[in-house]
Structures are given as structure tokens and as C-alpha cells.
Design a protein around this nucleic acid. Sequence first.
DNA 1: GAAAATCTCGCATAAATATCCATTTTTGCG
DNA 2: CGCAAAAATGGATATTTATGCGAGATTTTC
Lengths: 161, 161
Amino acid sequence: MRDFQDRNTRLKAIRMIVGSQQLESQDELLVELDKAGFPCGQATLSRDLKKLRISKVRLRNGRSVYSMSKEGMFSPAPSHEEVNREKWAVQFSGNLLVIHTPPGHASMVAYTLDNAHSALLLGTVAGDDTILVVLAENATRDEVIAALREYLPALRSKLSY
Amino acid sequence: MRDFQDRNTRLKAIRMIVGSQQLESQDELLVELDKAGFPCGQATLSRDLKKLRISKVRLRNGRSVYSMSKEGMFSPAPSHEEVNREKWAVQFSGNLLVIHTPPGHASMVAYTLDNAHSALLLGTVAGDDTILVVLAENATRDEVIAALREYLPALRSKLSY
DNA sequence: GAAAATCTCGCATAAATATCCATTTTTGCG
DNA sequence: CGCAAAAATGGATATTTATGCGAGATTTTC
């Protein structure tokens, strides 16, 4: 990869721009991307939109604008192998846990945690690359870390007591 | 009109075909229309689709197929009018911050906060009109408010110490 | 640490879609 | 009916979007 990080921030920027403006063509979007500091070619943008599953939707006034399907807020589940290589971050704050994942992977991890049905984890909320885990009030950090090590083996190296 | 009744039945036929099949181009749809007894040109079909507000939607497998717009499936960026209703709200709850935005704007605001790279803000999760911001354990509310006033000038009126 | 495999990206171009324009049909009205 | 205006349509074409391909960069493998 030429520059993985730049690519991902560009994808994030595209989400932001599409989510906040009504753009009718890729050329318009290219201009906005350029303003935001992510110049790229139309071909790349076309591929990015495909990855993000952004499509043009017709408005009542007859125009078509780019829009992300709500379902499409989440990227397809990555392979286990793929996930293992990537960088993760886990931070506690009070009775909350913030997990940063590679872009698009948050929902899959949250799903895994939800399915663990652990009494320690009251619930999760997933964005694109961030998961918010609400911990039970009586949960200790050591208990939670132990649980995470069990449910998410990929994170073990990032988890220390 | 050449034959008003035929035109309307053709539109109905298009609805039926689009609703029952996964077609990836107007040419494919033209073939189906022809089979159904409604031959017409690509130009006409393009206009019909616009009238019916049918657009192409991306599937998980990366392909795009025609589909009637379904309510709530998409969240196109709001118009300026909608945005100007100013439905912003900021609330603290423990070490969490809840920001309400106009529909569809959450991702944009979260993006701004992410890019601030403030040590006070551990992470954000954006839905459609709500953002959850997790604050660092040692962050005071005054510090956070000051940071928000800096990063999100638009919210100043909603932020008091 | 070098070769091989993988990934990203832009250019050029193909493919798909929308629109301009001319033509024909229908409608509305005296 | 006869005529003018409006609407519908298709061919040609402009516009928009997707992709084949190769160059250059990064990662993996041995």
C-alpha cells in the first residue's frame, strides 16, 4: 500500500462530506475532497464510493444525490486473518471501554462482544472504527480484560493487567 | 401524448419488474420491458426511472441494482432549510458527552472532533443525529467545554460553564 | 534483504446514463 | 374540423461513472 493511513482518512472524509452535503456528481465530490486536503482522481473516488457502498438516491425534486445506506454504515466483515494484523487500541474510562479498530471493523467486533453475553458487558455501540462498551458497575478492570482476552484473542497483545 | 394509458401501464410494468428482479443496467431492464410488451428506447426508460424515483443501490457484493426508494433506507444529507432549524443539544453524563445534531449531521461533527486529536476526547461514536463522546477520565467539564467551544464554534450558544 | 505477492492509484477508455433536438401524437379550443 | 400548444418519444450525443492496465510502493516470504 502506498499510504494506508491517508487512504483511510480519505474514506472517512468522504463519509463526512457525503453525510453533510447534497452532491450530484463525483466531480463535485472531488472538489470538496480536494478542499478537505484529500486530492485524488475520479477513478479512485469511484472505487472509494463502491467500497463505502455509497449510491446516488433520487430526491422528490427529481435530482439525484450521493447517500450512504444506513445499513451501509458498516463495512463487510473482514477475515479473521486480516483483523489480526491491524492496529487496535483499548482504553478505559470509568465504566466505559473504548475500542478503536481498523476502519469499518467496529460493527463486527461489537457483534462478537454482544454475542458473548457476558454479564460484565452491558452493551455496545459501534461506529465505523470505534466501539463503546458499557461495563457493569461492579465489573473490575481485570475481570473485563480477562473477558476480552477470551472473546477477542486478536486483542491480547494490546491488553495488559 | 401518444397513448396515455400505455404509458401508465408501462410505468406500472417497470415497478413490477424492478421490484421482482435485480437488474444492473437500463439495457437489461429494456429487455425485460420488451418481453412484457412495452418496448421503448433507453432515453424514455431513463426518464421513467426518474419519474418513479428508482435508483441504483449498492449490494454487499459490490454490485449495483435498480431499486425503488424505501422509506428510511437512506439518509441523504439534509437541505439547508432543515439544518437551520438548529436542533443542537449538548449534555454531560458522567464521563460521557451526548451531542444532538440535525438529522444526518452527526458524522460531520464527529469527524471534526476526531480530527481535533484532543487528549480530552478518547473517541466518538456517531449515529444519524446523535454523537456519543467519551471523555478522558481526568477531563474536567470546564476543560471539555472550552475545547468544544474551540473546535465547534457553531455550538457556542449551547455551551455554558 | 531480495524476490514475490499485494495493494493503491492515475490514465485512458469503456460502459452506463442523462439530455438535446427533431419529429410525431395528443389535447384544447374556437 | 383545423390549428396551435403541450407532451412523448427516439436517435444522437453529452455527461457521468466504472474498469483494464501498468507503474510504483508496501508487505510478505523465504
